[in-house]
Simulated assay, not measured.
Amino acid sequence: MWQAIRRWFDPRELRSVGSTPDYRFSLANERTFLAWLRTGLALVAGGLAAAQFLPPLPLAHLREAIAIALLVLGATVAIRAVDHWARTERAIRLGEELPASRFPAILALAVAVGALLLVIVVLVRGL
């Protein structure tokens, strides 16, 4: 695990394996990484907005729970983004199959479930 984390911060180690790929593949991998970071930042912004601007909700500490869930999810996305970028870059350099990931599906389900729960809260509050 620590070796994988070390790769995030040491570009020389990453470049020491395999051969230099077509730069377009590395740039596409970087764009994907940046898209994931934007997603993480949006979740963090949503968590801060929930903490600051949501009115008190019917259930005790629900507003705080929503904010914390969004903040944790945003942090998870950011960490997952850099790990996936490093693993993908390594696979590209080695000519291996790109790493598969269930994370996009898990993230999509988490966002959908969160949205549905918020719909329920809005409907209950409106009654």
Rank of each mutant, 00 (worst) to 15 (best):
L73T: 11
A100G: 13
W2Y: 06
F53T: 02
V44W: 03
G74C: 04
I68R: 01
G126V: 03
A69C: 02
A112Q: 15
L73W: 02
P11M: 03
L123G: 06
A35K: 08
G46A: 13
R125P: 00
P11S: 05
L48Y: 01
A28H: 11
L43G: 00
E13L: 10
E89I: 10
I79C: 11
T88P: 02
P58M: 00
I106N: 13
I5K: 00
L27W: 10
V113L: 11
G40E: 05
A112C: 11
I5R: 05
R7S: 08
L94W: 09
I92R: 07
A4P: 06
F33M: 00
A115L: 14
W2P: 13
A105Y: 03
F25K: 01
A86G: 03
A51T: 02
V122M: 15
A45H: 01
L34Y: 03
R6A: 04
V121W: 02
A112V: 13
P11H: 09
G74L: 06
A110Q: 13
A69N: 04
A112T: 05
F25Y: 14
S19M: 08
A4R: 01
L107H: 01
P21E: 09
F9L: 10
R31N: 04
D83V: 02
F53M: 08
W85D: 11
L127R: 14
D22L: 11
V119H: 12
A105V: 08
T20I: 12
